[in-house]
């Protein structure tokens, strides 16, 4: 890799400036958000000294409590469904012989990554409206199903990557050593693909937790999740409460993504 040493992108003119600008643009808003979440004053824009006041207010706000609980229920259920489906899809697309239309299936599984979310949202709104009329059911099921659907590719990709990186001869060796197909899956394939499955589930969970567009279209009255509740709040008086909730959400997401990276990087 001598070539790489000769050519270093850091020596290009303006490298430092561009890098710095990019980092500032990325992180300054987040830093501001976090800092102002500890704001003691009534409004977001004026600094009123360090305080955990808004965290307390958010914590005691029953609407926030309900929205948080709802978000967690939806995210956990959707991630569970999406991970199960994605695991089966990943097994079917890596552990069977090549079949006709394999690429088409691959594209179809990853459809939510390519179709604009707003299109899916409108489509779901129309379909679910009809289902609501027909069945009369108005529970969280619609949101869970909708979230599960767009979470599938996020769960699928890390699981598939893990399966593709796995040595096929291990499964052949298991069958050679008297393991039935189910035992092979249970004792060899599943334990080895587990880091991918956990990573996929966490990614799906985070993606669901943070969704606004589809949720906004699909939810019935009184089914606000945390992000849609915050969006609603912003339309009225903006208080540092939103900052506090966002910071808490940020903390949770960072925690999960860190775990995701650690899990996907440790191989065998």
């Amino acid at each position: 890799m001598a070539k790489r040493k000769d050519f270093s992108v850091t020596r290009l003119p303006g490298f430092a400036t561009i890098a710095l600008t990019a980092f500032v643009a990325l992180y300054l808003p987040i830093v501001t958000l976090v800092v102002y979440s500890f704001n003691g004053s009534e409004t977001v824009a004026i600094w009123g000294g360090f305080s955990l006041r808004w965290y307390g207010i958010a914590w005691d706000n029953t609407q926030v409590q309900e929205a948080t609980l709802r978000s967690l229920i939806i995210a956990a259920s959707a991630a569970g469904i999406a991970t199960t489906v994605a695991t089966m899809a990943a097994l079917a697309t890596t552990r069977t012989g090549r079949f006709k239309g394999e690429t088409l299936i691959y594209v179809m599984i990853n459809q939510p990554l390519m179709v604009p979310e707003i299109v899916t949202a409108v489509a779901l709104l129309i379909v679910f409206a009809a289902v609501k009329v027909a069945t009369g059911y108005t529970g969280l099921g619609y949101l869970i199903l909708a979230h599960a659907a767009f979470c599938i590719p996020f769960a699928y990709l890390p699981i598939r990557a893990r399966l593709e990186g796995m040595d096929l001869s291990l499964e052949i060796a298991a069958s050679d050593l008297y393991a039935t197909p189910w035992q092979t899956f249970r004792r060899v394939t599943l334990p080895l693909m587990m880091p991918g499955v956990i990573a996929g589930a966490m990614l799906a969970f985070v993606i669901s937790l943070d969704d606004v567009i589809i949720t906004e279209f699909v939810k019935s009255a009184g089914q606000d999740t945390l992000p849609t509740y915050m969006l609603g709040q912003l339309r009225r008086a903006v208080t540092p409460e939103v900052n506090a909730i966002s910071t808490a959400l940020l903390g949770l997401t960072v925690l999960m993504l860190t775990a995701f990276f650690i899990l996907t990087r440790t191989r065998d």
Partner: peptide
């Protein structure tokens, strides 16, 4: 097996 195929877990 040629590559041994030992179970890493």
């Amino acid at each position: 097996f040629q590559n041994y195929a030992l179970f890493p877990h």
